[in-house]
């Protein structure tokens, strides 16, 4: 099987704060990591390769520093990794990102399965996977928590919906997004880390992929961020003091007043 795993580099914490004086994100001391949901995607790709043979290629669109993350994917079992990087890609929204990733997949030729994490922890949009699937004309299944079977150009998966599980049969090539229930990602191996240190990560540019400059980066983005701000909470709790017994009685009184208990 030829498998592509799409990954994003995200800040290592979602505890990002806005500096109230300058109204900008405080990024000091925050390390970049593999988007946690994407590490499940990578692990699933590597497991499928171990079972069915073939190749896992990790791809990411991002600045040059994302090379480090892609090297890490090699230590975790990816065979190859490619960075899609170009000044023209900057400022991409999900549509332009999906277009660029789809371009990379097309350039790779025959791909059976593309695996993405359910969503990123910084953007939380969960849109790139389905948008890319549509652009590639591939089957798409979101929230996959188990791959039950792959054979004869078909795959059967279990996925988590709001009300329960669905068993979905789809054709290959397919794009899936996976949830964290699907596996427990492995730790890197020492031999993997050593291999990854010397791994060459090719960088593909706009030109390399033959993409339309009007469809990538900010030019290709239909959405614009016009403002960022910290959510405000101005309510202040009425504190109920005293020994636990008194607190409980007092609380129940208040809830009853409001018809809540």
């Amino acid at each position: 099987m030829n498998i592509v795993v799409c990954l994003k580099q995200v800040p290592g914490t979602t505890e990002v704060k806005i500096n109230p004086e300058t109204n900008t994100l405080i990024r000091q001391g925050i390390k970049n990591i593999i988007n946690p949901f994407d590490s499940y995607a990578l692990e699933e790709g590597v497991r499928l390769k171990e079972k069915f043979g073939g190749k896992v290629t990790a791809i990411s669109m991002g600045p040059a520093q994302a090379v480090d993350m892609l090297k890490e994917t090699i230590s975790l079992g990816a065979d190859e990794a490619v960075l899609l990087s170009d000044r023209a890609f900057a400022g991409a929204d999900t549509w332009a990102t999906a277009y660029t990733l789809a371009g990379a997949v097309r350039k790779m030729g025959q791909i059976d399965l593309i695996i993405c994490g359910r969503q990123s922890t910084d953007g939380d949009t969960a849109q790139v996977g389905p948008e890319m699937a549509e652009m590639l004309g591939a089957a798409f299944t979101a929230y996959v928590c188990q791959i039950e079977e792959i054979s004869a150009g078909q795959m059967r998966v279990k996925r988590m919906m709001d009300e329960g599980y669905e068993i979905i049969q789809s054709t290959l090539p397919a794009v899936i997004t996976v949830t964290k229930e699907i596996n427990i990602p492995r730790l890197p191996s020492l031999r993997g880390v050593m291999k990854s240190k010397s791994a060459k990560i090719p960088i593909w540019t706009l030109q390399d992929m033959g993409l339309d400059p009007k469809k990538v980066g900010l030019n290709g983005s239909f959405t614009r961020v016009v403002k960022i701000f910290t959510p405000q909470h101005d309510k202040k709790a009425e504190m109920i003091h005293g020994e636990p017994e008194i607190q409980v009685t007092c609380l129940l009184g208040k809830l009853r007043e409001g018809g809540l208990a």
């Binding site: 492995r186 730790l187 191996s189 020492l190 993997g192």
Partner: peptide
Amino acid sequence: KDMADSDLFRVFVPAEYEGL
């Protein structure tokens, strides 16, 4: 098993016997 998968047992074994 995790240690094995991470090659930690290879650390002290000579390279000619699949160690590090």
